[in-house]
Design a protein around this nucleic acid. Sequence first.
DNA 1: TGTTTCACG
DNA 2: GACGTACGTGAAACAC
Length: 936
Amino acid sequence: MAFGKGDHLHLIDGSTFIFRAYHALPPLTRKSDGLPIGAVAGFCNMLLRYIEGNNGGTAATHLAVIFDHAGKTFRSDLYPEYKANRPPLPEDLRPQFPLTREATRAFNIACVETEGFEADDIIATLTKEAVAAGGDVTIISSDKDLMQLVGPQVQMWDAMKDRRIGPNEVVEKFGVGPERVIDVQSLAGDSVDNIPGAPGIGVKTAALLINEYGDLETLLARAAEIKQPKRRETLLTKADQIRLSRELVTLRLDTPLDTTLEDFIIRTPEPEVILGFLGEMEFRTLTRRLAEKMGVEAPVIAAAPASAPAVGEAPAPTPPEALPFEAENYACVQDIEALNAWIARIYEQGYVAVDTETTSLDEMRAELVGISLAVAANDACYIPLNHREGTDDLFGTAKRVEGQLDPALALEALKPMLEDMSILKIGQNIKYDAKIFAMQGVTLTNIDDTMLMSYALNAGKHNHGMDVLSEEYLAHKPIPIKTLLGTGKSARTFDTVAIEDATKYAGEDADITLRLWQLLRPRLHQERVTTVYETLERPLSPVLAQMEMHGIQVDRDTLSRMSNAFAQKMAALEAEIHELAGQEFNVGSPKQLGEILFDKMGLTGGKKGKTGAYSTGADVLEDLATEHELPGRVLDWRQLSKLKSTYTDALQDHINPDTGRVHTSYVQTGANTGRLASTDPNLQNIPIRTEEGRRIREAFVAGEGKTLVSLDYSQIELRILAHVANLPAMKQAFHDGQDIHAMTASEMFNVPMEEMTPEIRRSAKAINFGVIYGISGFGLARNLRIPRSEAQAFIDTYFERFPGIKTWMDETVAYAKEHKYVETLFGRRIHTPEIAAKGPAAGFAKRGAINAPIQGTAADVIRRAMIRMPEAITDLPAKMLLQVHDELVFEVESSAVEETIARVKEVMENAAMPIVALDVPLIVEAGTGKNWAEAH
DNA sequence: TGTTTCACG
DNA sequence: GACGTACGTGAAACAC
């Protein structure tokens, strides 16, 4: 295809990139052989940033990087002094030039240079060609010499300053439009390039003259008319010099080239090639970043020096030494000199394990008691800040323990290090510590989290708390916190722990964290889950921290009124139940209820399980409701009891007195599939399915002048199923925007869509969900309350009509059996150690293996959306507050609701891209209101 | 501390 | 052939 109208050529001025990179970065050298590579690193970084969208807001169809050729150019022949007073090339830059060419080619970008010409001439020639062909051009450079090329089809883009250069910017710079830039430059000359111009005339005067006379030739011809004697004299006597200058500054439009515009068509980089090159250069961060971008595993690169990691580079952990723990080795930091010495050591090393000790697990109410740091095994310290004497006086003001650093002073000293992007802060569940620090005005940046590493590595194998990890990986049982604080009613808070004990405990926590990091970091690579950790875990942690700290406003009065109403209704029901039972008993006790129902009243039903107690679950009571009035009343009572105790009562206790809001905690490692869990309180199970329960959502409100906006994925798990199991009929239905359950029903029962009844649709819906859960005849039968044989017949029909399902399920189970794990589309691994089990456990493991890739992929999708969200809405008065698996809730200034919805939708619907291109569209639906009931 | 129940996706 | 069973969570109350 010939280059032409509609095409857009981007020309990157390679020299600008190289010099900028060289001067912007410290003189980095390759670890293995000392080769200077700072400019190459910066160059690659800039190319990557360009690829990531720092391109002037215009997408290129064609792209090339243009370089200056080494050696003399035709300009030196014209004027030997041309560029003669340039400073010599730095020694360590010269060997990097060929490497930048190699880098460009490794990115699969065309690379152009021509002997005897400058990059600017090539750019000019290519620009002319592209314009003649009817295309558009963006020149990525800030070089003023290129401004003469700007025109209706040609713009420049200053990538460093993120600034477009069009005709207006040219006028700003030269006082004339692009077409007269050459004339002005010819007069004004250029000291950097050593172009003589007209002595005594600068850009200002030159522009003045050109604007007055129209162009350079006219000016020179009519120079005698100029009033100012000096200017007149100069123009008359230096006309030759000015014309020479014009030749020097005029870019050549006829540079010989052995490539054509078509050669510059955009090409995707080959992962092996570009990652190979970056690996060879030993650019670890860049390799990782690009590998993530391309959705492939980064190759392992030799360890970087532990002493001086490059900016933004996560240093490679040194191999762990199986040293026994020596708690008595931990230092207690009690003066500023000692603290500063630790900070200096951390700067030297480039990374540190951090842990905070506080008075509460609720970060929003916790007070900072102390901080521990570890730089190596057995090399840790504890900084006590707010330890108090154990005994409160009558006013609750216990005395501060002597010999502690002033907290403000200590934090002031630590803050620069904690906020320094070049120092890696390692934590175990570091979201907690980040929030504690945030309350102190310190923003923890550049973090690693051993808990999240374990989650990426081991989801499904074991939990990821420090105790488990320490025993699993370090064969060391940490000091139980119980031994310091006690349990139950007599439990103390950490601030009353003796500093000596606290030092051992806190020092150990930091020590363990550091050792875990040393072990787990390299395993991410070995187990091929670096991408999961880097793209789905590490960046989510700060996003969650922000959401949790914002919290959501909850109206206490609304809840309180509901509680009272529920209490009254419950009392009435209770009396009725006792009446029906003929005796008083604890309605909330399943055991007592079972005895009343089955022993006393003789209703039919069975015992259950190891405890031998009657089962009185909702399904059982619903069946019994046809025989007797009592079970129905109990169901009503239970519903109210649940709503009151779990929601209307408990939520009030969770309203933070300072903020008036409820701050949940998301557990990133809570669900093996990649889903989040929400605790203290759980805001992911606020009622909605019954009208009475749904009203609890009315208590979740937007602030003054704000609106709650809820956006949720429509049928995301079924869409993912359609994609992974490759179900053409279902994919088509999603493309057509059909009612998916009705479509399934129509397909299964041969009922035309127009004749669909709610009853048939309901069955199909149950089967659709059943499939996601690893369908079984028994389960479906119970759910639909139909005979098992009938349920099995449904399933058989389903598998017949959607043949991809069975194949996919079998393949998935086989994969799990072979690998002992399954994967989401994004590479998240969920281990299935039980898959080989015999007996009932086998069924569980099978269904889990089938469900995990679907639920997990959906979880990955919304995670990706959440990670991108802060930047997408950064300029809007909108805050992301809650996540409920397939729903995100925002609080937005009412005037910005529409814009927010548009932006959020965009991010959510495209969240799988570019790593995964689903065969079905992801659709997001939005709702708004003053409260969550209205918004959902 | 373990079990049962039930709220959500 | 029997086992038992829909997937993933958290919180509250009861029972021991």
